[in-house]
Structure formats: structure tokens, C-alpha cells
Write a protein that binds this DNA or RNA. Structure first.
Lengths: 156, 156
DNA sequence: ATGGGTAGGTTGACAGGTCAACTAAAAAGG
DNA sequence: CCTTTTTAGTTGACCTGTCAACCTACCCAT
């Protein structure tokens, strides 16, 4: 393979979407590894725990979490089941609407949340510190615009 | 759920990595849909076809593609098998190194490449046009720094 | 009240992707 | 040479996430 050919091939990689996918895949893998090592849970599980734990109340409606996080029904269901099997979360039928579940952290779930949140926050901050304030703002705004553009063109 | 609680929950979503994951997921879904509609292939298949097609030579070493694209061995193997089943790609054992495969596009594979590349390029350009030049540069540079930070901290 | 529509949740099936075990071929090093 | 190590590729197991089918509970209309 000649230099020029390799150049041509590499050029494809500069497509914005490729870059994005690669970066995201790496960040994701890093988060998964970190969570597995420090908390023994996967990313979906952490997201659920974090959302329950960050709520002011002790219980949270499952439907709210799904809606806010854009979580898939099926994935959510299985994730919660796993968390219950691990004794981290409890679920109870809501009294007013018997379709809904009220989720709560158990003691060990709360402990896991308290011990893991700083780790994850630190990771976020370390990542964000790789960028200065302007760059961070630019990055976030760029992502916003991309997302908008994607939605706009998605069903065109 | 009170306003403040919803605020707390939503705040988690502003974590840079969440934003990135969401944007990437959307872009990915969009690309998958587009490829399925216009070419009847999936994203992995397109990546392979694009890489073969963009090479100056008519044949390309499979190992080079994997290395440059960071493609998983297993995924690559199955992807190529699918492409061969669809009659888009042919594979031949390299004469000098019998471990290696030389991949080439068939006529229909080349046709698919020629007809799909403009579509995908247009998509990239449409996305990039959502950002002005400065923003694009900032976004790419931000992604670079993030990726670097992720690698740096990944095994810490 | 009751029948139709809708929302919450579970489940099965499936696609995309990762990982590890394995085979075969080539390179490295005595 | 012959042994050891490395590299290309295939395959099987597995995980995550998506989609559709389904059930149940609620809501709303008449």
C-alpha cells in the first residue's frame, strides 16, 4: 500500500461522523471499564442508579426516568431487573396508578451511588479539563447543532 | 415530580459524555437508515466498501483496512462474508502472504460505491454546513482533545 | 358502565459489536 | 534447519440496545 493510498483511506476517517463515533466509542468503553472496576455494574445500571439517587425524593417513578433519559422500554425493564437482583434497587407499584413503578435505592444501592458518583464526576471533570472553557462551550454548541441538523435531515 | 427534581435529573444529562453519546446515536441511526434506503447495506458494510473503493488500486489488503479503520477482527470477517454473499466484494488469497486476503469490489460493488459515495458525502457536508468553519474546527479539535484525554486516563 | 384508545411494563427476537479461543501461515532466533 | 513467536483470519459465546408483540391498567367518550 502506497503512501497516497493510505492517505486516501485515512481521509475517509476525517469524516466528522467517523471521528465522533470513534471518540464516543472510546469514552464509552472507558466508562464501562471504570464502572465495572469500581462498582461492578454496567453503564445502563449506573444511569438508572444515578437518576434515582440524584432525585430529591427517596422514590422515583420509573416512567419519568425513561422519559427523561430517553431510555428504551425493554432495556430499562431488564436493567431494573438486574439491579433488583443485585439488591441495589427496589420497586413498588405506585398506589395511585397501578401501572407505574416507584423505584428506590436500597441501602447498598445508596452506598454505591455515593461512592461512585464522585468517581464519575471526577472523570467528567478530567475530560472537561482537557478543554478550556471556550472549547467546552464550542464543543457543546457544536454537538447541539449537529444533533439538530441530524434530526432535521433524518426524515427528509 | 417537582421542578427541582426534574432539574437535578436533567443536570445529569448535561454531562458531556451523555451529550456525545446521544448525538452520536442519532447520527448513527440516521446513517444506518440512509444506507439501508439507498444502498440496502448496513454501516459496517458501507465502511468496508468505502475503504476498498477509495483505494487507488483495485485490490486492498484486508489487514490494512482493519488496522486503519480500527475494525474488530470478528466483525470485519462477518461483514466481508456478507458483502461476498451479496456479490459486492470478492476476496482472494494474497500470493506473497497466504494469510492475507486481497479484497476487491465487483462491478456491482463498484457501482454501489459510486452511487452511494455522493449520498454519504452530501450528508457529511450537510452536517458540516450546520456549523460554520470556526465551529467545525473547534468541534474537531475538541473531539481530538477528548479522545486524547480518554486514552490518557483510560488505563490510569 | 362500557368499549376504545392510550400509557406502563414485560418479553422474545434480532442486529451490531466485543472478546476470547482456535487454526494456519509467516517471521524470528537459535 | 527446527522451534518459538507473531500475525491474519474464522468462529462461538456473549453483551448491549432496538423493535415489535403482548398484557394490563387507566382514561375518556358516549
Amino acid at each position: 500500500m502506497t503512501q497516497t493510498e493510505e492517505q486516501d483511506l485515512l481521509q475517509l476517517q476525517n469524516f466528522l461522523t467517523y471521528r465522533l463515533a470513534r471518540v464516543q466509542a472510546r469514552l464509552n468503553a472507558q466508562a464501562v471499564r471504570l464502572l465495572k472496576e469500581t462498582a461492578g455494574i454496567n453503564l445502563s445500571q449506573w444511569r438508572v442508579i444515578a437518576m434515582i439517587g440524584s432525585g430529591g425524593d427517596d422514590t422515583v417513578l420509573a416512567a419519568d426516568l425513561k422519559r427523561i433519559m430517553g431510555f428504551d422500554k425493554g432495556l430499562f425493564s431488564r436493567t431494573v431487573r438486574g439491579l433488583m437482583a443485585d439488591g441495589l434497587v427496589t420497586s413498588a407499584v405506585d398506589e395511585r396508578d397501578q401501572r407505574c413503578q416507584r423505584l428506590a435505592l436500597t441501602n447498598s444501592g445508596r452506598a454505591l451511588y455515593n461512592s461512585t458518583l464522585p468517581v464519575m464526576r471526577a472523570r467528567q471533570e478530567r475530560l472537561q479539563d482537557a478543554l478550556d472553557a471556550d472549547e467546552l462551550v464550542a464543543l457543546l454548541s457544536g454537538l447541539d447543532k449537529l444533533e439538530t441538523a441530524a434530526s432535521a435531515g433524518g426524515h427528509a
